[in-house]
């Protein structure tokens, strides 16, 4: 749980499963991520990594898995500890 993305998921995504049981490519929407919790997740990620998701990234796919989130953050130049 030391990976910040997983910590943020745990705190903000209101998933129905334990984040520790999720693989990097697990579908977060199937794990219980809703439209509204994806908004909270996005705002928490921006806060943690000091980035701003541009409009074209504000869609469902950006937050569909841990690896998708990591990829999006990398694209924005954020440094994500693995």
């Amino acid at each position: 749980m030391d990976e910040p993305i997983r910590r943020i998921l745990d705190e903000h995504a209101h998933l129905q499963v334990d984040v520790a049981t999720l693989g990097d490519d697990s579908d977060l929407y199937q794990a219980g991520l809703t439209s509204h919790s994806s908004v909270s997740l996005m705002l928490a990620l921006e806060d943690e990594f000091d980035v701003e998701f541009p409009q074209e990234m504000l869609r469902k796919k950006t937050f569909e898995s841990i690896s998708a989130i990591r990829g999006a953050l990398a694209q924005l130049g954020a440094v994500v500890a693995r």
């Binding site: 439209s35 509204h36 994806s38 908004v39 996005m42 705002l43 998701f53 409009q55 504000l58 869609r59 469902k60 937050f63």
Partner: peptide
């Protein structure tokens, strides 16, 4: 707001 763009995109998708 900006975060609402996610909700709007989901609603359209």
């Amino acid at each position: 707001g900006r975060s609402g763009k996610i909700l709007a995109a989901n609603q359209r998708a």
